[in-house]
Amino acid sequence: MLDFLFFAGLVLYFAAMVLTFVGMVFKNKKVTDLGWYVFMAGALTATAYLVYRGIVAGRLPLSNQFEFAASFSWGIAVILIFLHYRFHLEWIEAAGMAMTFLILSYAALQPREVTELMPALRSAWFGFHIGSAAFSYASFMLAGAAGIRYLIAAKKDPNDERLEQMDYFIYRLIALGLLLLTITILSGAIWAEEAWSSFWTWDPKEVWALITWILYAIYLHLRLGRKMTGTAMAWYAVIAVPVVLFTFIGVNTLLPGLHSYGTLTVSGMM
C-alpha cells in the first residue's frame, strides 16, 4: 500500500508536468488546467503517503535521506499550491512541478523501508529542525524555478509585463527560505548542544548549511541594499540551486559526518 501511494504520486506528478508543458507550448488553457488538477491529485496522494508512513513509523517521516527527499518534494508542492491559490502565479507552475517531480524521483532511488528512529534523532527538535529544513530547501528550489522562468520569459520578450512579478517572487521565496534556514540552523545548534554538548561542530552539513545561508544572505543584500533586480538576480537564484542540492545530497553522500544518519554505522558511537 505504501509503495503504491508513493509511485502513484510520482506518476501523477510526471503526468501533471507533461500536461502543463504541453498546455504551455500549445497555449491550450484546458490542458494546462488539467495539468494543475493532476498535480493536485499527485500532491494529495503524496500527502496521504507521508501521513500513512508517519502512522506506520509512529513518528514524523523525516529520519533519513528518502523520507527527507519525500518531505522536501511535498514542501515544494505545498508552496506551489499556496502560490497558485493566493497569488495566481501560473507562470511558475511548470518549473515548480518539474522540481517536485525531480526531488521525488531522487527519493525513489533511496531505500524506502520504514526503520526505527535512532536514539540520536529522538528529540523534541526533530520535527522542527528537519521540517524547517525541508520547507527552506523547497522555497529555494522554487526561487530557482522562478529564476528559470524569468530567464526564459526575458529572452522571449524583454518587455514581458510578468517579469517584475517574477523578480519579486524570486526575492520573496528566497526571503522565506532564508528565514526557514535560519530557524533550521539555530534550532539545530540548540539540539546539537543537547546531544553533543556543543552548539556548533563544523560538521560538513553545518558548514554547507552556513554556506547556503551566506549565499542567500548576499542575494538579499544585493536585492534590497543595492536594489539589483532582473536577469542577473534571476541567474543568481538559478545558480544557487546546485548549492542547496549539494547541501542536501552531496554532503550526505560525499562528506560523511555527524549528520550522516543511516549511512554510517560505528560500533559504540551514538
Binding site: W202, P204, V207, W208, L210, I211, I214, L215, L255
Partner: peptide, 9 residues
C-alpha cells in the same frame, strides 16, 4: 567565509 568554509568541509 564561504570560500574558507568550502575548504574546511
Amino acid at each position: 567565509i564561504c570560500i574558507i568554509s568550502v575548504a574546511g568541509s
